[in-house]
């Protein structure tokens, strides 16, 4: 029973990171109808920035906050400079741009910081709680993620800009007619997604080690979480991310040979959801009248 609880709690911790990535992916998907394949590499790059800042400042929290702020600004700039020019281009062009971004960030990180793994300390103290069930880092990850997600939710639900962003994503023409600058709302969405991705990256780095490919697996789990929860439901994406984390951990332990099959499991989940419940568990089926 203890093992089961340990697995579940550790799953929730890693699932929190997937939830951050899934939420970032869904935020951009809702506004543009596209998956940002570069979301993981952007988060990885942000994490490296946090690491570089940590070498200078020596304070992990300060480095983390600056890195998240920089990621927010970088997200806005990327949207304005790289994504906006192709927003009306055919879907293939846009996917190529996303994949290009992915490779650019991956290679830049390798160039700047080399491919040797680095260690980024946890945001949370080593010996905070005395429990055999969960580590302090994992508990911190879960609580901190819940806090971030709560703040994000309140921002979208209760602020004027949050409402305008939802309106711009759902009905851009109508949003323009009431005076919302839809282009800037998209850019802001990229900024927020990038910042949330950075949070996920810094939280996961102490678990997976910091190197340019650290997010490739995480992004796949994040996609699985987003699809499982429903790509048009931010709350669903978060729930999906958490579920994928827990299911993955169970599968690694209880399925024979499962410890080697983590990513396979994520892919099976993606294919399974697409085949049997394309709208996800919490998503809406969108029916278009023609």
């Amino acid at each position: 029973m203890d093992l089961f609880l340990q697995l579940t709690l550790a799953g929730l911790a890693i699932g929190s990171v997937y939830a951050c990535v899934a939420l970032a992916v869904v935020m951009i998907y809702q506004a543009t109808d596209h998956f940002n394949f570069a979301q993981g590499e952007m988060a990885m790059f942000s994490t490296f920035v946090a690491w570089a800042l940590y070498q200078v400042t020596g304070s992990i929290w300060l480095s983390f906050l600056i890195a998240v702020a920089l990621s927010f600004i970088a997200g806005i700039i990327i949207e304005r400079v790289i994504v906006k020019p192709v927003e009306n281009a055919p879907i293939f062009n846009q996917i190529i741009v996303f994949i290009g971004l992915l490779m650019i960030f991956n290679n830049l990180a390798g160039w700047f910081w080399e491919h040797t793994t680095k260690t980024l300390p946890s945001l949370f103290p080593k010996h905070g709680i005395d429990s055999t069930l969960i580590s302090t880092h994992n508990l911190g990850v879960i609580l901190f993620t819940l806090l971030i997600l709560g703040v994000t939710f309140c921002f979208f639900k209760f602020t004027k800009v949050g409402l305008a962003m939802r309106a711009a994503a759902a009905n851009p023409d109508s949003a323009r007619l009431v005076g919302v600058s839809v282009g800037w709302m998209l850019a802001l969405g990229w900024g927020l997604a990038s910042a949330i991705g950075a949070v996920g990256g810094v939280l996961v780095a102490p678990i997976v080690f910091l190197e340019p490919n650290m997010m490739s697996g995480v992004l796949l789990y994040g996609f699985a979480g987003a699809l499982l929860g429903g790509v048009n439901s931010p709350g669903g994406a978060v729930a999906g991310g958490l579920m994928v984390g827990v299911l993955e951990n169970w599968a690694r332990q209880y399925v024979p040979g499962g410890s080697e099959l983590g990513l396979t499991f994520a892919l099976i989940l993606i294919v399974g959801v697409l085949m049997f419940k394309p709208a996800g568990l919490f998503g809406r089926v969108i029916i278009k009248r023609v």
Partner: peptide
């Protein structure tokens, strides 16, 4: 009519006052 279908009636009105 350009309704924001997933937002509430009141949110629609707030959007009208966005500027």
């Amino acid at each position: 009519r350009g309704t924001f279908v997933r937002q509430s009636v009141e949110e629609n009105l707030h959007l009208g006052a966005y500027t």
